[in-house]
């Protein structure tokens, strides 16, 4: 308990930076994710995340460098390549978008597994560094990496907030936005690039498989609370930050499940589970559309219908 307090009060400087960077990344992801969800591109981030695995492997091959920045650059390049291929397939053929997304997710991940096995076969090749990307390990992040993530998250958030009006119009009525002369193609492309950036930046802490949760769950939760884009962005950012802080904190201070020898609680899943809990809470008690609220209203309606039809007879 004392440890948790120490962690949450951010007394330890390296913990402070790690926690700050994870939280700021969660905020950026929530902001970008809200727009992606409204633009019905919720799961594009998932394809990017899975495509980043072969990207990391290729960076390892090409650069022979294990610094996080280089590996993430490789992930970003392959993420963009993945989105480009998907867009091209969609444009050229009548193929179904959901099928294309699913195949991209699985196919790029398969390529990543193939490449990582090849790395393993090489002399001196060691997958330990790559395995960390599957499920994330924020708690052990290096301070310099944390600074990098912090800066990236800041830039992304600033971009979203700066172009809030334009993005809002794009999501709501693309044809109208084009009609009044907004560069809709470029805005669409920018949104996808932002998705790729936050996805890649989230890999070290949340991991390939779950990073899309940071893009999807906080906005979905915020949807329950808000009727306008502004409040939705604010609520999503708050829920994202809260999940990141609570999740990272829990995984750091809970006694490790596997005893001293086994690893600790996996950070990524703990963050995602915290976000999921906040989502369920939002779903139940949100004032406009909460499940409990709606059940109460429906109950009232049914009794009023029955009493009125009874009085008619």
């Amino acid at each position: 308990m004392a440890e948790l307090l120490r962690l949450l009060s951010l007394q330890d400087s390296s913990t402070r930076v790690v926690m700050l960077s994870t939280a700021s990344l969660a905020i950026a992801a929530a902001l970008v994710g809200s727009l992606a969800m409204l633009r019905r591109r919720a799961l594009v981030g998932d394809a990017v995340a899975h495509a980043s695995l072969p990207g990391i492997c290729l960076a390892w091959f090409v650069a022979g460098d294990r610094s996080l920045a280089v590996l993430l650059l490789g992930a970003f390049v392959l993420g963009l390549a993945c989105m480009g291929t998907m867009a091209l397939v969609q444009r050229l053929s009548k193929a179904r978008e959901d099928a294309t997304t699913a195949i991209a997710i699985s196919g790029f991940f398969g390529l990543g597994i193939v490449l990582s096995r090849l790395i393993q076969n090489q002399p001196g090749g060691n997958r330990a560094g790559l395995d960390g990307f599957l499920f994330g390990k924020a708690a052990s992040a290096v301070t310099s990496d944390a600074w990098l993530v912090l800066v990236v998250a800041g830039v992304v958030s600033a971009t979203v907030l700066g172009l809030r009006k334009e993005f809002g119009l794009l999501c709501f009525d693309r044809a109208f936005a084009a009609g009044i002369g907004r560069p809709v193609h470029r805005l669409d492309a920018l949104l996808l690039v932002l998705v790729a950036i936050v996805t890649v930046a989230g890999l070290p802490s949340v991991g390939v498989v779950l990073v899309v949760a940071m893009l999807v769950i906080p906005p979905a939760a915020a949807r329950c609370w808000s009727v306008s884009l502004g409040t939705m962005l604010a609520v999503a950012a708050a829920i994202g930050a809260a999940s990141a802080i609570i999740g990272t904190g829990l995984s750091a201070v809970l006694p490790p499940p596997g005893g001293a020898s086994g690893g600790g609680w996996p950070t990524g899943p703990m963050i995602v589970l915290t976000a999921a809990a906040l989502f369920v809470l939002s779903l139940l008690v949100a004032p406009q559309q909460g499940l409990l609220t709606a059940m109460w209203r429906r109950h009232r309606l049914r009794s009023s219908v029955q009493s009125s039809s009874g009085s008619m007879r």
Partner: peptide, 16 residues
């Protein structure tokens, strides 16, 4: 005969 239908919590057909 006195047909009412509700979607979610709103009546869309009332006592037809």
């Amino acid at each position: 005969h006195g047909v009412s239908v509700a979607y979610r919590d709103e009546l869309v057909v009332e006592g037809v």
